[in-house]
Design a protein around this nucleic acid. Structure first.
Length: 388
DNA sequence: TGGGGTTAT
DNA sequence: ATAACCC
């Protein structure tokens, strides 16, 4: 079950937008209102789903790759590949050995650095925002655009004979996907298909999953998704991560953290906003529970925040120090440890100079008002795991 | 299973 | 801080 949208995740018509060209694009709800004004209020939402996005970026960067079976590799995984590779049996998220076995001619490029993909991704979003500012991103390669207003304006300009000649094609729902956890719980209830979900007792489902999830997924099972398209705007967080077989000393951790932080600071610098919170995330080695992560976060001291726009050199050391404190808060370094992932996240982004001091807003915004200013310390205590 | 993201609790 | 979801 697709969580966010009822729109097709992988395109109705089968093989992934092959006919459409590069992008899968499907109107998600149509049928303009009858002249009488009856019927449900129609929305026009276009779902733009770019296929094998990373591979396409690579082929644009290096046109010699076009026409060859191409895979994008992260660690020992082929995370995506172009159509040539797919024809030869390569699948998304296939491991490199299997992929090479299936397709010995496969050309692999390393895609662990997401910079160019991220840049191209935002170019796509910005392009769509020219049609309507209401564009919601989902990952790097999907966008939902609410074109309702645009379509209504155009319809008003049409003559009536043109209007009657107009056909609006609908929407195809496919029955697949359910998030992993919810899928397991539904399966325990005997629900394994969309039809099962449609016909299942609402009351029992609400009791099992909570009213919010239950009502939403059951509506989705009928292809009904009234959730608004929420403009994504600029990102709420920046993070960089690296996974590896083994990292087991403080020195290694520090080196990795420095690398991650350096890239992050460049990104944040370009963005222009200032992060007010920093977080360190780790994954410990374990045979089971592979996806579980732990994190610690704390506020970024204001004197560091102020230096952020300028040269990053003077902030890197104090920030690494903070991250190492967070690290030691999570991991007892006197004991042996084995990490398989490190990630640094900068979040709680604020446009600088939004200090509304002196404006009326300053006194009207609770978080800025004097009463909660005295609560500043308790905020810090809640947010931080470090003694100051 | 990568290297990202978001929202809810 | 974590858990769940998305790609």
């Amino acid at each position: 079950m697709e969580q966010r949208r009822a729109g097709p995740a992988e395109e109705a018509g089968g093989d992934e937008a092959a006919e459409a060209g590069e992008a899968g694009c499907s109107p998600a709800a149509a049928a303009p209102e009858e002249p009488g004004g009856l019927g449900p209020p129609a929305r026009v939402i276009v779902h733009v789903d770019l296929d094998c996005f990373y591979a396409q970026v690579e082929m644009i960067s290096n046109p010699e790759l076009k026409g060859k079976p191409l895979g994008v590799q992260q660690k020992y995984l082929v995370v995506t590949c172009n159509y040539e590779a797919r024809k030869l049996g390569v699948k998304k998220l296939m491991n490199v050995r299997d992929a090479k076995e299936k397709c010995p001619q496969l050309v692999l490029v390393n895609g662990e650095d997401l910079t160019r993909y991220r840049e191209m991704s935002y170019k796509v979003t910005e392009l769509l925002e020219e049609f309507s500012p209401v564009v919601e991103r989902l990952g790097f390669d999907e966008n939902f655009v609410d074109l309702t207003e645009m379509v209504e304006k155009r319809l008003q300009q049409l003559q009536s004979d043109e209007l009657s000649a107009l056909t609006v094609s609908g929407h195809v729902y496919n029955n697949q996907c359910i998030g992993y956890k919810t899928a397991k719980r539904l399966e325990a209830l005997g629900i394994s298909s969309v039809y099962d979900l449609q016909t299942f007792s609402s009351k029992i489902l609400e009791k099992e999953l909570g009213i919010s999830v239950a009502q939403r997924i059951q509506k989705l099972s009928f292809g009904e998704d009234n959730s608004p398209v929420t403009p994504s705007g600029p990102p709420q967080s920046f993070s960089e991560e690296d996974s590896f077989k083994k990292c087991s000393s403080e020195v290694e951790v520090k080196n990795k953290i420095e690398e991650l932080l350096a890239s992050l600071l460049n990104r944040v610098c370009q963005d222009g906003r200032k992060p007010h919170t920093i977080r360190l995330i780790i994954r410990r080695y374990s045979s089971e529970n592979h996806c579980s992560r732990e994190s610690r976060q704390c506020p970024i001291p204001s004197h560091i925040i102020q230096k952020l726009g300028t040269g990053n050199c003077d902030v890197i050391t104090p920030m690494v120090d903070i991250l190492m404190k967070l690290f030691r808060n999570m991991v007892n370094v006197k004991m042996p440890f084995h990490l398989t992932l490190l990630s640094v996240c900068l979040c709680n982004l604020k446009a600088l100079n939004t200090s509304k001091k002196g404006t009326i807003d300053y006194y009207l915004t609770p978080s800025l008002s004097t009463t909660s200013r005295s609560g500043k310390r308790s905020f810090k205590m809640k947010d931080s795991h470090m003694e100051d």
